[in-house]
Design a protein around this nucleic acid. Structure first.
Lengths: 192, 192
DNA sequence: CTCACTTGTCTAGCGATGCTAGGATCGAAT
DNA sequence: ATTCGATCCTAGCATCGCTAGACAAGTGAG
């Protein structure tokens, strides 16, 4: 049995290597440059090996997205737990979210812009995604205001953050005033 | 001279045909299905003809985006001018924006999600794009509130709409409560 | 220790993509 | 009518995601 266990360990390690390498390559040169050939070469295996771990490129993107969701959830919780007072917490949350999107553009794209074949807002939504939304909900729910469902409020706030993140990075919004936009968003949307 | 003028007319007509066909094909089957071969076949010319009008596929997407921006600006102005009172106007604006995104997903993608090689928030931003932002500004500027720059407010409101539009369409947000999200967004962000 | 066999990996190749070079054909001006 | 330039198409390149089938390595039985 020990032999089989060792093989499974090595196989799992290689799978992590694939995902990590895809992420690294995407951050360095963009997702367009993440081709199955280049990825295979970087992990020092041939192309078909990738397909013994994932159905295709989409699933690799999905795997990067899941890892990113877990990482983002942790970052959000770390930032909000270090802040006291609802307003401070929400500002910290917003900054951390936008900061994550800016520092990890490829991962952010995998999560929300590209098709990673993941289910959202559904029964079979993977746990890391639900948890990332839960992390948002924890801090945003307390500033939803009277008679507004916390989930609905979180969705709207999240959408606003997502819009700011994507439009800013695509050059649709000037990067200069980013901080003032966050202030405005929090002051208006959140009920303190 | 008349011969040359006729040729230029025909050439311009063919360029419009290319853009219209690309848009149609994208709306029918998605941008992934808009290949240069399929597009060429639909306009009943060979592939290289496309490259005598546009540098490449990117520029074709950009052309679709410009047309879409003009159309969206018109739709926004039509909706807001038919409404009286700031709040009614802003609600109409938001609904029209999201409606446009939902009814013309491919065009919306060309404008804001795909790379059409267009400059934004810069000197050389094409006129239709500036005008679409201006259409937003016209209605949103009047509800920015004291001490908030109309442009900044418009950017934030627009980002929120963009987030709602993209996340909803990608299945990240349940479509059911779309209307309530709009209500919440307007009630909180706009100062009436 | 040897040998069949399973398991794992690689080479080679398919169809499709964006884009381009070079030849053919058509029409305009003399 | 003939030359000549503009216009368009055929054919092809490199690259993409993905897969079939050959091959080698390691496994367990005798």
């Amino acid at each position: 049995m020990s032999v089989q266990e060792r093989k499974e360990r090595e196989r799992a390690a290689r799978e992590r290597l694939i995902v990590a390498t895809a992420r690294e390559l995407a951050e360095q040169q963009g997702w367009d440059s993440v081709t199955t050939r280049r990825l295979a070469e970087r992990i020092e295996y041939s192309q078909p090996v990738l397909y013994s771990h994932f159905r295709g490129k989409r699933e690799i993107i999905g795997a990067v997205a899941l890892g990113g969701a877990a990482e983002m959830a942790a970052a959000l919780r770390a930032a909000t737990s270090a802040a006291d007072g609802p307003r401070t917490r929400v500002v910290a949350l917003a900054r951390t979210y936008l900061d994550f999107a800016e520092r990890n553009p490829a991962v952010y794209d995998a999560m929300f812009r590209l098709d990673g074949g993941l289910a959202f807002a559904a029964e079979d939504t993977p746990e890391p995604l639900k948890d990332a939304f839960a992390a948002l909900l924890e801090s945003l729910g307390e500033v939803a205001g009277e008679g507004v469902h916390p989930s609905l409020f979180t969705e709207v706030f999240w959408a606003a953050l997502h819009g700011l993140a994507t439009l800013t990075r695509a050059g649709r919004l000037p990067a200069a005033e980013a901080e003032r936009r966050v202030e405005l968003l929090v002051d208006r949307l959140a009920v303190i």
